[in-house]
């Protein structure tokens, strides 16, 4: 199975409350925040690795995992890290972060998919900076591919996947045939979420994503990393949406600590009038 995994770097999501908006409201400043891979994309990579191996022999790749990112030279750090955890090769689409929107990324990915012909495009359901949750769906439609968004489980079958999607009110199970697009949710990296046909049904993964050992980090420096110009993938580089400015959310005024349950019930009833 050949899988293409698009990765985006984002400002450290665990410190997202430290983003700053200048008085002009012109930008969001993430100065001082470390770049991290978008967590959902990291989960997609982990899921791609699980789909292309026997769980008990994770160093042998059955098929190919190709990672791609959009951005300046420095985003190659994100790609090298992905190569170290087991991806076979990487592509960087040279682009400026602020000259992209979801449609443009999807258009360029479409061209890349037509070149690379993966069986599966596997990506995060959303990037946790823009929080739009759109590229997978737009890409699938433009390719006329089936899609399964918010995947929590995946099981490889002949020529496709059985995918469990977390939706309002329960879990929908879909059968998709390749080529397809799948976007993943948080629980795709639980111990029993993803099974290739090689992995024994009783096998359990460690919870979460795998980490690269030092020799793998060294070896990753020699893995192929190609650079592609955005213009080679997308003739039309127009944007469909424009951001005019940014605002900080209103601060919540500090609350109080109550001394016990009686105090709490009393305040909820008489002060907040919430009961």
């Amino acid at each position: 199975m050949k899988i293409l995994v698009p990765l985006k770097r984002v400002a450290d999501p665990d410190n997202a409350n430290k983003v700053k908006i200048p008085a002009s409201g012109a930008t969001i400043e993430t100065t001082g925040l470390e770049w991290k891979p978008n967590p959902f994309d990291e989960y997609a990579l982990e899921a791609a690795l699980r789909l292309t191996e026997d769980g008990k022999a994770p160093k042998v790749r059955a098929g190919e995992v190709v990672v791609v990112t959009f951005g300046p030279k420095e985003t190659e750090t994100t790609l090298r890290a992905a190569l170290a955890t087991g991806a076979d090769r990487a592509i960087r689409v040279d682009a400026a972060d602020d000259k992209l929107d979801g449609h443009l990324v999807a258009r360029a990915l479409k061209a890349l998919v037509e070149r690379e012909k993966p069986d599966l495009v596997l990506m995060g359901k959303q990037a946790v900076d823009g929080d739009s949750n759109q590229v997978g769906q737009i890409l699938a439609e433009q390719l006329d591919y089936p899609m399964a968004t918010f995947a929590a489980t995946m099981k490889e079958e002949a020529g496709g996947l059985l995918v469990g999607r977390e939706v309002d009110g329960g879990v929908i199970t879909l059968r998709v045939k390749f080529p397809a697009v799948v976007t993943v949710d948080l629980r795709i990296v639980a111990p029993t979420s993803v099974y290739s046909m090689k992995t024994a049904p009783a096998f359990k993964y460690n919870d979460g994503v795998r980490f690269a050992a030092l020799p793998a980090i060294m070896a990753a420096k020699k893995k192929p990393l190609a650079e592609v110009k955005l213009a080679d993938l997308a003739a039309d580089q127009g944007l469909r949406v424009t951001y005019h400015g940014f605002q900080a959310p209103p601060a919540r005024k500090a609350g109080i600590k109550v001394k016990d349950v009686t105090d709490l019930v009393n305040r909820l009833k008489n002060e907040a009038k919430a009961l």
């Binding site: 908006i21 946790v128 005019h244 940014f246 900080a248 959310p249």
Partner: peptide, 11 residues
């Protein structure tokens, strides 16, 4: 955006 730590105004 950013887990509710910023609002974007867009069109």
């Amino acid at each position: 955006m950013f887990a509710g730590n910023a609002f974007g105004i867009m069109s």
